[in-house]
Design a protein around this nucleic acid. Structure first.
Lengths: 109, 109
DNA sequence: CGCTCATATGAATATATTATCATATGTTTT
DNA sequence: AAAACATATGATAATATATTCATATGAGCG
């Protein structure tokens, strides 16, 4: 993450949005708006993990985790790689961290 | 918005989260995760507006808007001020813009 | 090849959420 | 004070969502 975000850049980003883009935005935030998925993302802040490890960390049912991983993957927030029987998941890019960090900053106030 | 967000700051922000904070975070993002609410926030990027104006802009039922305004207010994303019969709403702080801008950047890729 | 381990998927149920309708509250005007 | 206007609120119905259970797929191993 080399970039920094200043006021000018923020204002530029929020301009010119179509109805469709607003829907996509809401869809994206909806993905962040679930405790299980936030926990998974936080878990992956530690680095790549496979499904079993995530289940152990969150103390949750494997099926529930797989379902949520799929949603995160579809939203391109995480990516996956197979290694033998295991499927390893990791964060797709740094936006995830920035978005969550901004959310955290708001919540903490 | 005087602040800038660099990698060090982001990494610091995402550390040390309790289970409760993760729930609060998910709750916050859930608020962003609805088209109507995102549209309202976008509408308020233009500045303070009253309920009737927001209804007109979004072409939506007053009751639906009021219900969503309440959710946004409870989450401290917007604030309100009464002027005669009208109630004026505006963004509570700059986090809203930053969070949405980051979301938009992700969606656009 | 059959077995076991790891993960994915489909169906079903339980729960949450949104918009609408009807109505209440609060403010100004006449 | 009654009427008109602006907003809020409660209940309901329709829809969406998450988890669970059962089972399928896929990979390595004896």
């Amino acid at each position: 993450m080399a970039e920094e975000y200043d006021e000018r850049k923020i204002d530029h980003l929020i301009q010119n949005v179509s109805e469709d883009e607003l829907s996509d935005l809401a869809e994206l935030f909806k993905v962040f708006g679930d405790s299980t998925r936030i926990k998974i993302l936080y878990d992956l802040f530690q680095g790549e993990k496979n499904v079993t490890e995530i289940c152990d960390d969150l103390e949750m049912n494997q099926s529930a985790i797989s379902h949520q991983l799929k949603i995160l993957k579809t939203s391109k927030l995480i990516k996956s790689r197979r290694d033998g029987k295991a499927m390893y998941y990791s964060l797709a890019d740094d936006h995830v961290k920035v978005i969550i960090a901004m959310g955290k900053e708001h919540v903490e106030e």
